[in-house]
Simulated scan of single mutants.
Amino acid sequence: MNNVPMTVAGEAALRAELEHLKKVERPRISDAIADAREHGDLKENAEYHAAREQQSFAEGRIMEIEGKLAGAQVIDVTQIAKTGKVIFGTTVSLLNVETDDEVTYKIVGEDEADVKNNLISIGSPIARALIGKEEGDVVVVRAPGGEIEYEIDDVQHI
Results as ranks from 00 to 15, higher is better:
A32L: 15
R37C: 03
R61V: 01
D31K: 13
I87A: 11
Y105N: 12
S93L: 06
T99N: 07
Y48H: 12
K43G: 15
V92Y: 04
V108T: 07
E44S: 14
E44Q: 11
G40Y: 04
Q54H: 08
N45S: 10
D31V: 05
V103Y: 02
G60N: 11
E44G: 07
D101I: 02
D41F: 09
G40D: 06
Y48A: 07
I75G: 10
T90H: 03
A70N: 09
A50K: 13
T78V: 13
S93H: 03
D101H: 07
T99E: 06
K43E: 15
E66P: 04
V77E: 10
D31F: 05
N45H: 07
V77R: 12
L42K: 10
L95N: 11
G67I: 01
I107A: 09
L94I: 05
I75V: 15
G71D: 13
D31Q: 13
A32T: 07
G40P: 04
I75R: 09
D100W: 02
K106V: 11
E47L: 12
G60R: 04
Q73N: 15
Q54W: 04
K43F: 09
N45R: 07
T91I: 02
K68I: 13
A72H: 05
K68A: 12
D35G: 04
L95I: 14
Y105H: 15
Y105E: 09
